[in-house]
Every structure is written in C-alpha cells, then in structure tokens.
Amino acid sequence: MPGLHAGIRSVIHVLPNEAWTGLLFTALLIEQLLNGLQLGVMLFLMAAGLTLIFGVMGLINLAHGSLYMIGAFACATVAAATGSFWIGLIASLAAAAGVGAIIEVAVIRRLYDRDHLDQVLATFALILILSEGARWLFGSFPLYLDIPLLLQGAVPLPGGGQYQLYRLAIIGVGIAVAVGLYLLISRTRLGMRIRAGESDREMIGALGVDIGTLYTVVFALGAALAGLAGALVGALQSVQVGMGEPVLILAFVVIVIGGIGSIKGALVGAVIVGVVDTMGRFLLPSLLALTMPASQATTIGAALASMLIYVVMALILAFRPSGLFAAQA
C-alpha cells in the first residue's frame, strides 16, 4: 500500500523519513485492527442482549443503553466505596440484571403483544426516566472509574508496537461471552427453552414452561451483558448520564447488519462495525490526503468516517434485507 502509506505520512506530516519504515506502518495497522476488534467486542456485549431479547420476545428495547449506563454507574460507585474494581464489576452485573428484571416485570411484560410502535414509545419513555433517575441518584457530575491494577500496562506487539493489556482483556471477555452464550443456547435446558421460544412461543407454553419466568430471565441476562459492557467501558471513558445512547445506536446497527435474533450475526456484525469504524477514522483522512491538501483531507475525511458505518449498513441491507445471518424468515 505505498499510496496509502504516503497519504498517512502527509496527514501526520512532519515525521522523519526513517520512521516510516514498513515495519512501523505494519505495527500501527495491527494496533488499529486490534482497536477495531476491541470496539467490536464491546458492541457485541451490547448487541447480544439486544438481539436475544428481540429473538425470544420480539421486543425492541431502546432502553438497553440505559442498562449499560446503570452498569457503569454501579461499577464506579461500588469501586469507589470498596476500592476494588472487581467488586464493582460484580455489582454492575447485579445492578443491571436487577434493574432489568424489575423493568421487565413492571413494564416490558405488557409490551410483548403490542406492535413495535408501542414498544419504541414505551422504551423511549424508559430512557427519559432512567437517565434523569440516574442523575437524581448520582448527581450531575461524571464519576471516576479506572482500570484495575492487575490489567494496567501494555504488551508488546509483533513489529515493535505495543497494546494495552486492559483492551486485550476486553477482547478476551467478549470471546468468552460469545462462547458462553453459544454453549448456553446449544447445550443447556435454558438454552433449549430460549430456542423453543424463538421458534414457537405458544408451543413452549403448552409444554409447561413458565414463559413469564423465562422472559424475565432472558431480559435480565441481556441487561447483565449490557451492564458488563458499561462497567468495562466505564473504566476507559467518562461515566456520565447519556453515555448509553451513542452505543445503543451502534448496537442497533450491529444487530441489523448481523440479522436480528442471531447471536452469531451479532458477533460478526459487531466486528464489522468496530473494524470499519476504527479503520475509517484512521485511513479515510489519509486516503483523501492523496488527492487534496492535508488540512482539507482531515476535515472531510473525518466527516466521511463518521458516516461510514451507516453507509456500510445501508449497503448490506440493500443486498440482504434481513441482515447477514437472519435467524428467522
């Protein structure tokens, strides 16, 4: 990629020539790919719950981002009180699952037999309630949460770069969750019921499964995954009200690309979105710098990069209207 290489050099313009050996460029590229993967894995944690809830209960949950926020707030608060990130992490799972179960019983349960429109409005209302409620409880200022001591530092990459240990750990957690979900759904009794629920809702009722409990459990599971994502990302970002909304939109993009209801689709979609977004931000300004002045290229490149995943999504849906791995016809 000599042309691109030159483009990157002209955006990061005043590097000494010897710094631009192919090796360094490769290291940067690998690092950015890992960054894309990490973003994707984080999106997968959000999207898995979202797609599971849709697949089993047929529900669009706009408030999923609020559960992410609750996870981050719980982790930050408990970590600040106990001094341990890990206790905070457990608290985030518990808090998000708990709030998820309460919401399911109090509100969501009444929405399963409604059309998507009512679901959109009700969960939109939940966003308002949960965001403002969180501000009521935790105040208006962002909270502090740092990565645990155990995971600080970086590991060397082939080619001379290095990569942050914590981000590698997030990738690991994401892969573990993906494997865990696969085993849960294919090997356990709960998974069997979930699969049954996806294909025929009345049938599992007739088989004597308590659908109400099953739904609450699935919703709480999805919520816990969102809470986990929030806590993990909270250590990297700002823990504040409204942090769930940008992620929510991206998670929706992910499940739509992957095919709604499909965990595998969510994983593939998440990695596509993560990598495309990261590489777009990294490469687009550089590519444009080949054809226009660098200052213009950075602005226009950034503008195009922010639209890129939506373009990709529109393209995928234009050719596969039910996503890449449509679970149901």
Binding site: Y310, M313, L317
Partner: peptide, 13 residues
C-alpha cells in the same frame, strides 16, 4: 425492525 433501523441509519448519515 429492519425498516425502523435502516431509516434511522440514513437519518444518522
């Protein structure tokens, strides 16, 4: 849902 989300995607663009 695909329609809901793809219209959202265009608006976000």
């Amino acid at each position: 849902v695909y329609f809901i989300m793809i219209t959202l995607a265009f608006a976000q663009m």
